[in-house]
Design a protein around this nucleic acid. Structure first.
Length: 267
DNA sequence: ATGGTCGGCTCCCGA
């Protein structure tokens, strides 16, 4: 059966609720991983998701900043919230569920953006980002016997040349500096992951999931980056049927600066 | 070389 999973950094779940509801109604993913919910757990809008048939909602929120949520039509067998860098940030949530004939572990990540200066000696936020991705290397796609894995989220790193509008002009800009890109690829290698977006889109093709709010016209300038990712365990690769980047969502009413990415697996 | 725009228990800070 087809199983569709999506990731979307929505930059406030309460403010963005109308377009998230529109997305769920029209695309009907089985599971949606949200980042930057910016919503304390006690204020999370559960009812809106239940009304659309998403009865299973796992949240990891905090006041003002960060926050992740996993919205699902399928029940969870297990929920884990990991505190990366042990500073109490709500940046990770994982669930286990059954889809088709498979058991699936679904990780939802919001990696720190890392500030402006790509030097940890003068920018603690960049140091935090490097420490976070170092710790992420322990997140292994083959951690649980008999359980396939997916890792989705805003990883705030665009690792390949065609993940940014200009490799040359981005090389010293946080999100595309060599150190963090290597760090991200090391998680993929050490953790036995496959970049499912790049398994679907050829390396020669530019793929973006984020366009700055600061551009006068995001579509005309098209200075995007691929900050959002969908990774899977190797056994899932033959089941990958489609990947869609919903670029049009950047032009919706009161948009997020990120757009949804969907992957469909035949499992 | 610089500034541009969002969101949040907001008058700064993080993105």
């Amino acid at each position: 059966m087809p199983f569709t999973i999506a990731t979307w950094n929505i930059n406030s779940v309460r403010l963005r609720l109308p377009i998230v509801e529109h997305f769920l109604r029209t695309r009907q993913p089985d599971v949606l991983c949200l980042q930057e919910t910016k919503c304390p757990n006690e204020f999370f809008p559960h009812a809106a998701f239940h009304a659309l048939g998403y009865d299973h909602v796992a949240i990891h929120g905090q006041k003002g900043y960060h926050g992740v949520a996993t919205i699902s039509k399928l029940p969870f067998e297990d929920i884990v919230r990991q505190d990366f860098c042990a500073i109490g940030d709500a940046r990770h949530l994982s669930v286990r569920l059954r889809a088709g004939g498979k058991r699936l572990r679904v990780h939802n990540f919001y990696v720190p953006a890392g500030g402006d200066e790509p030097d940890r000696t003068i920018n603690v936020k960049f140091g935090h980002k490097l420490d976070f991705i170092e710790e992420m290397r322990l997140t292994n796609a083959e951690a649980e016997p008999g359980v396939s894995s997916l890792l989705l989220g805003d990883l705030n790193i665009a690792p390949f040349e065609n993940d940014v509008w200009s490799h040359k002009q981005m090389i010293r800009i946080v999100s595309h500096t060599p150190g963090e890109c290597e760090g991200l690829l090391k998680i993929v290698a050490d953790g036995n992951w496959v970049d499912l977006m790049r398994a679907h889109f050829p390396m020669e093709e530019k793929v973006f999931t984020w366009w700055s709010y600061r551009a006068k016209d995001w579509l005309a300038s098209n200075r995007g980056r691929r900050l959002d990712h969908i990774w899977g365990s190797k056994d899932l690769v033959p089941h990958l049927a489609d990947v869609t980047v919903l670029s049009e969502a950047r032009g919706w009413e009161r948009p997020s600066d990120h757009v949804p990415v969907l992957a469909t697996l035949d499992i």
